[in-house]
Design a protein around this nucleic acid. Sequence first.
DNA 1: TGCCGCAAGTTTACCGGTAACGTAGCCAAA
DNA 2: TTTGGCTACGTTACCGGTAAACTTGCGGCA
Lengths: 335, 335
Amino acid sequence: MTRKPKANLEDIARETGVSKMTVSRVLRGGSGFSDDTRTRVLQVAERLGYIPNRLAAAFGADQASTLVGICVPRLTSGLFAHVLDGVDRALTRLGYQVMIGCNNHSAEDEEAWLRQLISWRPAGVILSGRHHSPGTVDLLRNAGMPVVEIWELTTTPIDMAVGFSHFDCGAEMGQFLIRRGRRRIGVVGAMAGQDEMGRARRDGVERALAQAGHPVAAAELLLDTPGFYAGYYGLETLLSRAPGLDAVYFHNDEMAIGGLAYAQARGLRVPEDLAIAGWGGMEAASVLPLRLTTTVVPTTAIGKLAAEGLVARLRGEPVQDVVAVPTRLVPGQTV
Amino acid sequence: MTRKPKANLEDIARETGVSKMTVSRVLRGGSGFSDDTRTRVLQVAERLGYIPNRLAAAFGADQASTLVGICVPRLTSGLFAHVLDGVDRALTRLGYQVMIGCNNHSAEDEEAWLRQLISWRPAGVILSGRHHSPGTVDLLRNAGMPVVEIWELTTTPIDMAVGFSHFDCGAEMGQFLIRRGRRRIGVVGAMAGQDEMGRARRDGVERALAQAGHPVAAAELLLDTPGFYAGYYGLETLLSRAPGLDAVYFHNDEMAIGGLAYAQARGLRVPEDLAIAGWGGMEAASVLPLRLTTTVVPTTAIGKLAAEGLVARLRGEPVQDVVAVPTRLVPGQTV
DNA sequence: TGCCGCAAGTTTACCGGTAACGTAGCCAAA
DNA sequence: TTTGGCTACGTTACCGGTAAACTTGCGGCA
């Protein structure tokens, strides 16, 4: 089955009549060879269909890996998909390869994945969130490679960080709801609170509302993943327990849209009877008949900045350790 | 910076007082050592914080790679996100690592990515679609590793295939629209037709409508990526060119929901004045006030089956070369 | 004329595993 | 007593690159 590629440096060297070291230098674009040699080597390499063996290169030389790992909490989230896209485009352009992982919002899964990743001796790694297991931090310190923590901001990164404050997102929306005259405000969470960052947003809302003198009226913390269904049934459950709410803050836009669907199915007028606020800024939110009030997050930019920061560090260029990206509260028509 | 992990097999061997070959055998769970030796080796490995070097293993032994590549047309599509999730879960469970790629619906980009992937000597690869460049096919034949083509079905796979017929999806929806009495049917496409599979669906619709004696009344092929905005403005454009349509088939659900938003904004009654059909089965489609008529695709299952088939082949187990997964037309309330 | 420096190479050693093969010691069957 | 097989190892060679050190030939310059 796995017959190996036909040509290696040795083969090219033999055909060209030089040493394999010279071939290596030519193919990597170094110096110490004549134009004539270069041309001949390239021709032979082309003719033999040479494909470099990065395994050997990274193994032999250390320092030479072009592999970067990225671990996100969920692969099926539209937001992380865009982060991944930003990372992938930037790294591909810069000549790196991307190994993915998914930790299901679990620090243990993250550590397990990281252990696998490190066994490939990558050039760097991008993690999501700022909460990691002690084992994870240990592994990273020993590996001595660049690390970027994305999504949530931290002032004490393991190495570098690109993100924003989820707490502030929540607080800002809480204040907004108050300014719009809402007083009986509920929240719908997801994933049993395992999503630390979703929890930070809820904490932000709670703090803002409490400070305004109108603390959270009711909260429903679902076990489900934060999707449309969960939003739909989450709002149903919340309203059955606490009728008379005049606003609800959802874990994210998908849930908010699900909630919006429920409200409309129930004949509630949005925003007159009930205001609905989401988070994340998914595209669908802005083409609904009722544009969703939400906080837009620069997903792709985060991925891009993280990737570029990582590579800059690898190249020894100066980098900013902590990059705060701006989020933007977009008042729609649902509040 | 990149200081290497402290312990390797040699270190463990020295500390334990055996040869590194014995350590290797113990750690890989082979045979040829006593229980006592096993215990001591494991203890030392644990104490030294040994992390295997898969680079060296895969390089030295060939055949020993646990790296699998997967290339999808777009990372930001919700459908492919689920495919990726299915692949990732299955492969992680089976002890493999996943390298991702994105080809932007371009065969050249796919080939470029594959070339990078192969330089890592992976155990196998999963590609999307059945149209590949000659170079891609060449690379794969020479690499001699398992290949799974997913998403679109083919009777002549390079190696294995897991998918369904996009043409049939389109044809089925076309017939459905006709059965529901629609006669002036339009279609909205995306990505300038570069998405071969979206084109196959349109071809299916066209064929079905033509056979029924009511050929496609109007078609709008956008340049954009298939998102909500594109659906919104796509329908606007289509209706301005061809007023009086009584049904529109969209490239996918996201566009259909965008189209639905436009129809409602324009005061069109759906489905009375205009029927709207999507494709893909995104979750949002079923919680809208008006449940979208669409074709549900088993995304996660495709990823899972592809990953499992790949690993089965690697293990020399018997596998089915071509697996057809079922899609399901779900009549919603928009037709 | 002799020395230096540079361009254009070559040679050697090594990265950390694994396959293949070798071997010592022991026990059981012939 | 010999032989044969088994267990539990050890030895050797090698995978395909790259860093570092070494060599060779040539032109310029004192």
